[in-house]
């Protein structure tokens, strides 16, 4: 009786695991294959089917890629730009999101719409005026001005995500805190903010990935101080396969590391607070 009752459960469990493994493979297999080709011998990148082990293992392609003109410097630029973007867009976006979530004011919906509509401008048609303005204002070819641009690009996402995060935190909690002697600010800092952290982490993750992968503004607004994607992305598509794998692998790893680092905040995806 006991075993019969547990059979569907075991089956369910097995199915869950199989499904989980399949989904994991769906994501990990390409990453793994890119890694294999990035660390394999040059010619092995052309063999088909792809080898499942980098034999012989070599860092020749990878080190050539890393040593090639400006890669290291561009990684620094990318990190600086991404970090500034992350900080700025959180500092500006989170209060905006909180305001939309907590306060009812006239034009709230219009504001929401306007925020999203900024994303509907194709940046391609803005490129030349944007570059001209940046040159005239003396902000051209600098990682700091690029970070401003990325902040502008990231803000709509940050505002929308954080507003839904704050909206999902019951207002009663803040009010309860206020009845117990907290000021409004204290209630926010001690109650809402800790509860909102996972959602804010998700927002920063999006911001980071957006800035890390953004090519177009980075290409047009910088010449010598390029971010990694601006430096290598268009160039890689024309390079030999082994370098493409090396470059792809290298571009992917920082994002993965960042995600691993921030993963525990993501367990409750934005807005769903289970604690």
């Amino acid at each position: 009786m006991k075993s019969r009752a547990s059979f569907p459960r075991v089956l369910g469990r097995i199915l869950t695991y199989v499904l989980a493994i399949l989904i994991a493979l769906w994501i990990l297999a390409p990453i793994y294959l890119i890694g294999v080709s990035a660390f394999g011998e040059k010619l092995s990148a052309y063999t088909y089917p792809r080898p499942f082990w980098p034999a012989p293992f070599t860092i020749e392609t990878m080190s050539f890629f890393l040593k090639s003109g400006g890669v290291i410097k561009s990684v620094q630029s990318s990190v600086i730009v991404a970090m500034i973007t992350l900080v700025l867009s959180t500092l500006i976006g989170a209060p905006a999101g909180y305001t939309i979530a907590r306060f009812i004011f006239s034009g709230r919906d219009a504001f929401r719409l306007i925020v999203v509509s900024t994303r509907s401008f194709p940046i391609v048609i803005l490129s030349i005026p944007l570059a001209v303005t940046f040159i005239e204002w003396g902000m051209y070819d600098s990682v700091y001005s690029l970070a401003l641009m990325h902040t502008a690009l990231a803000l709509p996402f940050t505002i929308l995500i954080t507003s839904s995060v704050f909206a999902s935190i019951p207002r009663d909690l803040e009010e309860a805190a206020q009845t117990l002697g907290c000021s409004q600010l204290e209630a926010f800092l001690r109650i809402s903010l800790p509860l909102a952290l996972p959602g804010l982490a998700a927002a920063t993750l999006f911001t980071f990935v957006l800035s890390w992968n953004e090519v177009f503004a980075a290409v047009i607004l910088t010449v010598r101080n390029r971010t990694l994607p601006a430096l290598v992305l268009t160039v890689l598509s024309e390079s030999q396969l082994p370098y493409r794998f090396a470059g792809g692998f290298f571009m992917m790893v920082p994002s993965l590391i960042f995600m691993l680092f921030i993963r525990r905040y993501l367990l409750n995806l934005w807005g769903r607070v289970t604690k």
Partner: peptide, 24 residues
Amino acid sequence: EFIPEDEGPFHDRITAEVQANQGT
């Protein structure tokens, strides 16, 4: 400093620099 660039940004950049009358 040798900077390889796609044709699109290549033309956009020079157009912008000439318009702003200030080049890199």
